[in-house]
């Protein structure tokens, strides 16, 4: 008894430490931290492009088109002689914003739909899933094209169009994951205790159904950035002078054989982003699971 009394202050210190626990588990995962560092750098690039490269990404040097890396142009120049490094740094802002925003929207809507459908089942499930089926039946690119064509060419519309294409995948993944958790005994125990459906979904079902959703976030992010390039390819992406990785990639596609570096640098940028988010996502998934050993 005496001993237990003494341990009380320790408990107080530890009480709100769930977040710290997660952070500690995450920090032990070196690859995940590496991913976080890359994301951090990308965010810095996105926030301060003019300080880290040239302030103007439209400066042309037509005498110097398709040049390779040099002291003046670190990553060479593009088809109009614009500095590739500057454009990649500035493109970070556009690509990350569109990618993250569209995935965030798709995730919020898709996870909500999937959770409701999976948890309640029955008629609601059928109705929601048929709506999702309709979304799935239209190819993402076609969906994007029609929305951009209808609503005009702006970043907001683009984000919306890409998000809409991702909703189906999110709700499908969430639904199947929720269904496996829904019938577990601890959910029944919560119901026996008197927990409301909302509480069960939020505190019991979602945390335990999270792993596949996080994986879906990382894959969707990559898909979204590439989707922008698809839309740019048909001229519905980001308006012309604004640098964006996807459009840079698709512009360079035609001259890939003669100037492979043109396609390589934006490609590496996209790859690095996706890679970083994948590492981060995996680490986050593991850190959120208390069952894994510290």
């Amino acid at each position: 008894m005496e001993k237990e009394k003494q341990s009380t202050p320790v408990i107080h210190k530890k009480k709100n430490s769930q977040f710290r626990n997660i952070l500690r588990r995450f920090m032990k995962n070196q690859t995940a931290v590496f991913g976080l560092v890359i994301i951090f750098l990308l965010v810095i690039f996105a926030l301060f492009p003019s300080q880290l490269s040239h302030a103007d990404y439209t400066v042309q040097d037509l005498a110097n088109r398709y040049s390779g890396p040099s002291a003046e142009h670190w990553l060479g120049t593009d088809e109009l002689g614009r500095d590739m490094y500057t454009r990649i740094v500035w493109g970070c802002r556009t690509s990350l914003t569109i990618g993250l925003a569209s995935v965030a929207i798709a995730c919020a809507i898709g996870v909500t739909l999937g959770t409701l459908a999976g948890y309640f089942g029955g008629v609601l499930d059928n109705v929601l899933m048929r709506i999702v089926d309709i979304l799935m039946a239209v190819p993402n690119l076609l969906l994007g094209i029609s929305i951009v064509a209808a609503l005009g060419n702006s970043i907001t519309v683009l984000v919306f169009a890409i998000a809409l294409g991702n909703i189906a995948a999110f709700s499908r993944v969430t639904r199947s994951s929720v269904i496996t958790v829904r019938d577990t005994e601890y959910v029944e125990a919560a119901r026996a205790t008197g927990a409301s459906d909302g509480r069960i979904m939020w505190k019991y079902v979602l945390p335990n159904a999270l792993a596949p959703i996080i994986v879906q976030v990382t894959t969707s992010l990559a898909g979204s950035i590439l989707n922008i390039s698809g839309l740019s390819f048909v001229g519905l992406g980001v308006p012309a002078p604004t640098p964006e990785w996807g459009s840079m990639l698709s512009n360079a596609r035609t001259i890939m054989r003669d100037y492979p570096l043109q396609i390589m640098f934006p490609g590496i940028a996209i790859m690095l982003t996706v890679f970083a988010f994948n590492l981060f996502g995996d680490g986050l998934r593991d850190a959120l699971d208390p069952r894994l050993k510290n």
Binding site: E185, Y186, E188, K203, P207, P290
Partner: peptide, 11 residues
């Protein structure tokens, strides 16, 4: 509940 392994939320 019967099974103390599955009737507690692991999170």
């Amino acid at each position: 509940f019967q099974d103390p392994f599955s009737s507690l939320n692991p999170r």
